[in-house]
Every structure is written in C-alpha cells, then in structure tokens.
Nucleic acid binder design. Structure first.
Lengths: 220, 220
DNA sequence: TATTTTTTTTAGACTAATCTAAATTTATTT
DNA sequence: AAATAAATTTAGATTAGTCTAAAAAAAATA
C-alpha cells in the first residue's frame, strides 16, 4: 500500500483541485499540509514516479486516474468514520475531524465496506459532504450558498463550506444545523448581511461571510 | 504521544513479560516483533531514556509503571476494537487481529471511552481475553487449560491460549467456541489426547496440544 | 578452568520524510 | 526589455527506524 504521508499528499491535491482546478501548485500544497515547499517538491517527484500524479517541474501537479482512486478512497473512509463517530458514538459535528483524520488511514477494504453497511450506506457525512461509493463515485450535490439565494426563497441547510470547529460551533449555537428549514427575509445593502427565518419562527441575522459558507439544497 | 513503533515495542514487552517474567531479553523481543536484535537494542535505549522501561545492558528490559500504563492502554484499545469488529461489523473471531493491530494506535481517550460505552463496557474480547479498564486494571480471570482438567469434570470454554487464525478456525469448525459447555470424558494414555462431550451431546477428541490452548472457567 | 557457543551490543550504512539555505526559473513591474 | 519579486527546485543535513557485519560479553560445555 501507500504510506500514511503519500496518502495525505494525494488527499491534499484532491481537495485543492476541487477549488483551484486540476493542476495545483507546490506552494498551494505546502500551505495546505503545513510542510515546506522543498519537501513538497521531493514528494511530488516520488508520487510522479509511482504514476499517482502528473508532475511538470515549475508548473504543478495533477492526480492521475490511479491517484484519484487513492484520494477518493481515503475521503470515503474519512467521511464514513465521521458518520460513525457522530451517529454511533454521539460526538458533535465539530469534534470528529481530527479523529477521522487518523482513522482514514486504516487499511482494510472489508472493514470499510462493512462499516458502510453498518451505518446504513449513508450518502453524506455529518457536515453534508457526499460520501463516494466503493468505486470512488460521488453522487453529485446540487447546492448553492445561502448568500446566492434570492430574497423570499425557502431552502434547507444541506452542507457547509467551512469546517473549522469554531464555525461549526457557531452554527450549532445559532440553530443553523443540517436539515434546518429557512427562508431569506432580506439582505442589508450596507454590508450584505442576511436576515432569515428559521423553521418559520425564529428570525436571525448572519454576516455575508457566514452566508457564503452555508450550503442550501437547490430544488430545480 | 509515543510513536507507533514505540507502542509496539512496549506492547511486545508487556506480552512477553506475561509469559516469561518481568525481565525480557533482547532476542525475545526481536523474535516477537520480527526485527533484528541490533535494532531492538537501539530502541531499548530510547525507551529507557524516556523512562518507559528499565534496561540493563546484556541483561534485559522491564516495563516501568508508566511503560506499563502505555502498554495496557494499547491492549485496551486493541481488545475493544476487536469487540466492535465482531459484535457490530460481524467479522469472525479469526479475522479481527490485523485490523485491531492498526486501530489500537488511534490516539483519542475520548474515542476509546465512548467506544467502550457503545459496546456496553465489555469485560472480555472475542477470544475471551480480559479488557483492562481506563486505568489499566484487568479484572483477573480464573482460567485453567482444558488439559489440566480432571476426567469427569465439566466446564465452559472461556478463552484461548493461541490466537492464530488457523487455530481459531479449527476450533470454530469443531464447535469449540467461547461459551461452549463441555465435560472431560477421558485422556488417552499413549499421546495424552483428550476426549470430551460438547453440550452433553457431541463427543469429540482433540490433541493434547489443542487441549493446552483451550482455557476453561475454574469455578472454585 | 579454558574453550566454544550464544546472546547482545557497537559501528557504519540505508530509506523515508523532513528541514534550511542557496540556486534557478517563472512572473510581475517598471 | 530589464530589473525585481515570487515561486520552485537543488544541495546538503537531520531524525527515526531499520539493516548487516564485526566486536564484546555472558552462558554453556568440555
């Protein structure tokens, strides 16, 4: 199999690709995994030798088919373990990331398939992120940010665009958890902050920054 | 915390101490963990520096209080995960060792305490081995080997002295699983093989070697 | 007790992953 | 287009854990 470290690089490249397109930079990875750029260069060469990425000097790296398979498998494992931690062990959604970060490297296909079944084949993790199937396929989500929704339109919170414990705790305290129904009441001209009605009863105002990190189901 | 490798050495020393007394030899460890003796010497020095073991050159090593704490914590984690794998994910008792060997190194006290509770605070793992509590205390077992039981005496299978998949599979196929009631019918003079009655109905004969590796509850 | 065997340690080398500092390439400004 | 700045790579060193081969100590045997 691949080393713990190799897996983390592949996962980092995968996540960065999602945001910044398929080719990711040495510095981007370096920042993302908190490792000096020189070290990243070394590892990129190694991953390229193993055909897990395509790497062109001074240009950047992108996952090959097989690198992508490894990355999505780790993400599958990470998210399934998160479901386990929240659903079965009753952790809060802001407590599970670091533990899942360790659990995702446990090597056993049989284990993960049985875990999947035990959990009832969940499609999303506790933050609303989709769980790839055993072949690495995601079922696509149709989500828009709360900031993009027109005034008056109703929606259901189905994901978050940021995963820091501080942000998740803030959402929890504000009653903005997954599955919450809401309607946009209005947007303040001055700073773009959004006021909304939770479950047709509680009014609340959130900053534009927060609104951008709340993902809502797009029924179309 | 301690590295994966350090933890494995401490666990090895613990297990060897159980069988061969508190002081274990370099070669003993070397064989147990499949690592050359020279490497073991290096690691013993390191563990001694960290006060996890007492080590005297050419004499051997023994766990300190704090080394013992680390070792029993790992054993606790290993055995709780084995219960999870068998009880919740429906693995067989001969399939769980290698996976638990990886899971035991996951670092989170909270995780393991919640897992313990989720599993109903089990006292033994799927092989009948006792699970230490969060302080590292075992509740002592009073088990004797099947080979030591007098003819005519009844007992309940409560543990095994060997954990290889081959042995466990053999027991399973022979109906000699944990909790099975049996009575010793007789012992063959020639080779010491033991004949017994399972659940007061099925007669079976096992070799002395096997009888020595089956642990039975000692009601006294 | 002297010799041989076994066990253990030391010495020196290797790999994976990281780092710092310096060199090189690419991108941005003037 | 030349100069400067930013990004990236190379070179050389470091740490953890391992190895082989040789040396040293302890144990077993003659």
């Amino acid at each position: 199999m691949h080393s713990f470290t190799e897996e983390n690089y592949l996962k980092a490249i995968y996540h960065l690709s999602q945001k910044e397109g398929p080719v990711v930079s040495t510095n981007g990875i370096s920042e993302y995994i908190n490792t000096k750029a020189a070290s990243v260069t070394d590892m990129l060469k190694k991953l390229a030798d193993k055909k897990l990425i395509t790497y062109i000097k001074y240009q950047g790296a992108s996952l090959t088919e097989s690198g992508q398979k490894v990355a999505t498998t780790i993400i599958r494992k990470h998210r399934l373990w998160e479901v386990f931690l929240v659903e079965k062990l009753k952790f809060k959604w802001d407590e599970v990331h670091d533990i899942a970060e360790e659990l995702e490297h446990i090597n056993s296909t049989e284990l993960i398939n049985r875990l999947d079944k035990f959990l009832g084949n969940p499609r999303v993790d506790p933050h609303g992120d989709p769980i790839p199937d055993h072949k690495g396929n995601f079922n696509p989500q149709h989500l828009t940010t709360l900031a993009q929704m027109p005034v008056g339109s109703p929606g259901t919170i189905s994901g978050v665009g940021e995963h820091s414990p501080a942000f998740l705790q803030y959402l929890e305290r504000s009653g903005l958890t997954l599955g919450t129904q809401l309607t946009i009441q209005g947007v303040t001209e001055y700073d773009g902050s959004v006021s909304l009605l939770i479950n047709n009863s509680t009014p609340i105002t959130i900053s534009r920054q927060v609104a951008k990190s709340i993902l809502v189901y797009d029924k179309h």
